[in-house]
């Protein structure tokens, strides 16, 4: 019985952890390559969920058509945001991009509140059935989140390792100036990176929205979690973000299961501040963070 509860929490944690890994992986890519801190990152997760809801409820599309459409729509918004607000500030004081993304997060949040209201939305997917393994319960959607998330993270790893644009991204992350000298169009890399990062957040939104109460405030919560994750994994390290994201999901689920669900959000904050004070380069970081 004890073991069943433990396994149940482990599965719940793994599901949410995959979501954190996707969101934080995108945030880490944006920070590692563009050197900007995107305070609006979680909002793209949130509008991914809402885009899915509207595509299904208003356009009447099935989940498998609405999902990719929602991701595309969010990436298009992200591209516009990057071109209009972030690109003009790339050469300016880093504080300006920090402030602009902070303002963007408010802009997106309050826009969604006005358009959709602050009450929750439910999304029905084709995966409504429940799988029972002994006493452990797993919904099909959770299984789909885990498998889909792992597939996308795997694809991301292959993409970064083998494609030309993936190699250019890694080169830019390594040394922006040297990358420019080698003829890499870093502005193009930036645009692509931002789109990719936002896309990962939107994918997470499309996967997670059906199993979580979808409210506008979920965006800010995911932004904060993603920050904890990328600090933990070493700023800008995508593998670090994925490992730390999954880990945070597990620890939160175990805290909720064994201690108190009201305080589970505090886990991320306490872990973050402790890591920053004791090991500021993150668990997998290379150093030079300060």
């Amino acid at each position: 019985m004890e073991l069943d509860i433990f396994l149940q929490q482990l599965l719940n944690g793994l599901t949410i952890g995959v979501g954190y890994a996707l969101v934080a992986g995108g945030l880490a890519a944006i920070f590692g390559i563009m050197r900007i801190v995107n305070f609006a990152h979680g909002e793209f997760f949130m509008i991914g969920g809402y885009a899915l809801y509207y595509a299904m409820a208003v356009l009447g599309l099935p989940y498998f058509a609405a999902g990719p459409l929602a991701v595309l729509a969010v990436v298009a918004v992200g591209y516009l945001v990057q071109r209009l607000t972030i690109e003009p500030l790339m050469e300016a004081d880093p504080l300006n991009t920090l402030l602009v993304t902070f303002a963007l997060s408010l802009f997106i949040f309050h826009s969604v509140v006005v358009v959709a209201g602050s009450s929750g939305r439910n999304i029905d997917t084709p995966f409504e059935d429940v799988i029972t393994l002994g006493n452990v319960i797993l919904t099909e959607q959770k299984l789909f989140v885990m498998l889909g998330g792992l597939l996308i993270l795997g694809a991301l790893a292959v993409f970064l390792a083998y494609t030309p644009i993936g190699k250019q991204m890694r080169a830019t992350a390594e040394n922006r100036y040297a990358a420019t000298i080698l003829g890499i169009d870093v502005r193009r890399v930036d645009r692509f990176t931002f789109g990719l990062g936002i896309g990962l957040a939107a994918v997470a939104g499309v996967l997670i929205a059906p199993i979580t109460p979808l409210v506008p405030a979920v965006g800010a919560s995911y932004t904060l979690k993603a920050f904890a994750v990328i600090v933990l994994g070493g700023m800008g390290s995508i593998p670090g973000a994925i490992i730390a994201g999954t880990g945070l999901g597990l620890v939160e689920a175990l805290t909720a299961g064994y201690l108190s669900s009201a305080w589970k959000d505090g886990v991320a904050f306490v872990v973050l501040i402790t890591v920053l004070l004791t090991r500021p380069t993150g668990l997998l970081g290379k150093g030079g963070a300060h």
Binding site: V37, P94, L98, L224, F227, A228, V231, D265, G266, F269, V270, L272, I273, L276, L277, P280, A289, H290
Partner: peptide, 18 residues
């Protein structure tokens, strides 16, 4: 105050969340 730049920003943000 032991952090700089964005780390400082994130730390203050998180302290407020706590």
């Amino acid at each position: 105050l032991r952090m700089r730049g964005i780390y400082f920003a994130i730390t203050t943000l998180f302290c407020a969340e706590v």
